[in-house]
Write a protein that binds this DNA or RNA. Structure first.
Length: 374
RNA sequence: GCGGAACUGGUGAAGUGGUUAACACGCCGGAUUGUGGCUCCGGUAUGCGUGGGUUCGAUCCCCACGUUUCGCC
């Protein structure tokens, strides 16, 4: 069972330092959670994930329900045993996947009706069903089943959608047993403060162990709208509960999120970028496919302590990516995940010193270089 | 030495007597935020072996040369 407490709030911002306890282990927040959709952080072993100092990892209800089936995972002794990961696991509810992945879908009050992408079967995912699947998976944090409308949705639609998500949250909570698991609610409402406020306050009334900010980094939403969505959500959430911005993983977005009171993030970006040959660095993202790295025998970042930077050069990793050797994607995944986790370490230090805004400005200036705009 | 065939970008190649030479790979860039894991989107031959000729016009027709390749002596 996970417990959470806030240790400090920064003087100049809403940023918090927190501590999460789990099976005798402790993890600090702000935290970045790598994504392991199918029960594996793509290309990495659990040992490699742990070496990046990752804490919680995320897995997916939607995917594991369709394959291999939550019954299989339950029979295996739960997701921790099944995938050999003894750290905390959060499962997404399937809400986002059903809206982004499931093609023909029919949203109703009951739930979402869609076709199984693998065999065409008609499937109905409901708030109750999502909770039940997540209980079978045996994750440590269970997410409520929400509707995740596009950023381009009208204000009228968002208001109705938020009301339905609240009814779904209530239904989910009613069937949730809470044996060794936490349940998180999800705040929606696009960039509108009145809707976010309503969504947050009503979700808090239902009462959850933690709260998420959903519906961000959707479509072509602007950064301003994203940051507003953070603020308009955290403003109305209780101080003593964990706040989680779903799907966020651009370094600058994480920093801006922490400034607005967010504690944890998850994102596919570090591993997806890795598979496509890109690496995070303090001087901005680099593309190892670029010809200029062909004879570059330096590590991605000489100051990085990850396995890839300690033992391999850009030229070698470029070669692996070019020849489609999976070891290349693996080294870059290790580096990119470690990069975001080091980022959270630096963020924590900055909060400790009450210098987060200064850290943000310096980070931005270096990361974006000439393109920097205050 | 004689005869045949073929020569199109980095590669494999399509193609037509008439504005911008198909496609694929490669190469050069870019994208990517609660993951459909080898993805997506751009750019990439001012030239069709070389030199002549026919024609209003030739990568496409004719001639010579060169190269490659096959067969024969």
């Amino acid at each position: 069972m996970i417990t959470f407490e806030v240790e400090k709030t920064e003087k100049n911002t809403m940023a918090r330092l927190g501590r999460l306890k789990y099976n005798g282990k402790e993890y600090a927040t702000p935290m970045f959670m790598p994504v392991g959709t199918e029960g594996a952080v793509k290309t990495l072993s659990p040992e490699e994930v742990k070496e990046t100092q990752a804490g919680i990892i995320l897995a997916n209800t939607y995917h594991l329900w369709l394959r291999p089936g939550d019954d299989v995972v339950k029979l295996a002794g739960g997701l921790h045993k099944f995938m050999n990961y003894d750290g905390p696991i959060l499962t997404d509810s399937g809400g986002f996947q059903v809206f982004s992945l499931a093609k023909p879908k029919d949203i109703s009050e009951t739930g979402v009706l869609f076709k199984n992408q693998y065999n065409g079967d008609s499937l109905l995912l409901t708030p109750e069903k999502s909770i039940q699947i997540q209980e079978n998976l045996g994750s440590d944090i269970v997410m409520s089943f929400d509707e995740c409308p596009p950023a381009s949705a009208s204000k009228e639609y968002l208001q109705k959608s938020v009301e339905r998500t609240l009814r779904w949250a209530k239904r989910g909570k009613e069937v949730f047993k809470g044996e060794n698991q936490l349940l998180f609610g999800i705040v929606q409402g696009g960039p509108y403060e009145d809707i976010r406020k309503f969504s947050a306050e009503e979700t808090v009334k239902i009462g959850f162990d933690g709260y998420s900010i959903g519906g961000v980094a959707n479509d072509h939403e602007s950064k301003e709208d994203m940051y507003r969505a953070f603020l308009y959500s955290t403003k109305y959430l209780p101080q003593d509960k964990i706040r989680y911005a779903m799907g966020i993983g651009e370094p600058i977005d994480m920093i801006e999120g922490v400034i607005r009171g967010v504690d944890i993030f998850d994102c596919v970006l570090p591993t997806r970028l890795a598979r496509h040959g890109h690496a995070f660095t303090k001087d901005g993202k680099i593309n190892l496919k670029n010809a200029k790295y062909k004879k570059d025998f330096e590590p991605i970042e000489s100051t990085c302590d990850c396995y890839a930077c300690k033992h391999y050069t850009k030229a070698y990793i470029k070669h692996l990516i070019g020849t489609q050797e999976s070891f290349g994607a693996r080294l870059l995944s290790i580096h990119n995940i470690r990069f975001l986790i080091r980022l959270t370490e630096e963020i924590r230090e900055a909060i400790q010193k009450d210098e987060l805004l200064k850290y943000r400005d310096e980070f931005k200036k270096r990361y974006y270089g000439d393109a920097y705009e205050k």
